[in-house]
């Protein structure tokens, strides 16, 4: 793959992941607003999300979208505001992507496991 194609597909991936995130954030916030109406407890959260395959799927998509979206933006910021080279910013982007995936899925799978 040429560098031009790779950069363009990365850019496209960031836009598409932003669209997915827009939906995910709205659903996430809407559920929070509805759920806190009668006060919120960890027991209630586990009862709703724990062991639920649809919520597991939803938050898995959420985590993947963040892991694709955020590192690309961070790389662009590093390129514009620092003198770091292209190779360095690529590795930082990859590391942040892995970090978000690990931390995100640890939370998602952990919460699912509590109710399973």
């Amino acid at each position: 793959m040429t560098p031009e194609r790779a950069e363009t597909l990365e850019w496209l991936m960031q836009r598409v992941s932003a669209m997915v995130l827009a939906v995910c954030v709205i659903v996430h916030l809407a559920v929070i607003v509805i759920a806190v109406q009668g006060g919120v407890t960890s027991k209630e959260i586990v009862a709703r999300v724990g062991g639920s395959v649809p919520w597991l799927a939803f938050y898995s998509v959420f985590v993947i979208a963040v892991a694709l979206h955020a590192p690309t933006g961070l790389r662009n910021i590093l390129r514009e505001y620092t003198s770091l080279g292209r190779r360095a910013t690529h590795w930082i982007m990859a590391a942040v992507c892995v970090l978000i995936l690990v931390m995100g899925f640890r939370a998602v799978v952990g919460l699912y496991g509590l109710g399973a």
């Binding site: 040429t2 560098p3 031009e4 950069e7 363009t8 850019w11 662009n76 292209r86």
Partner: peptide, 12 residues
């Protein structure tokens, strides 16, 4: 189109 794609191109 190749010249204006990628680093320093239109996506920036």
């Amino acid at each position: 189109i190749k010249a204006i794609a990628g680093t320093g191109g239109c996506q920036a």
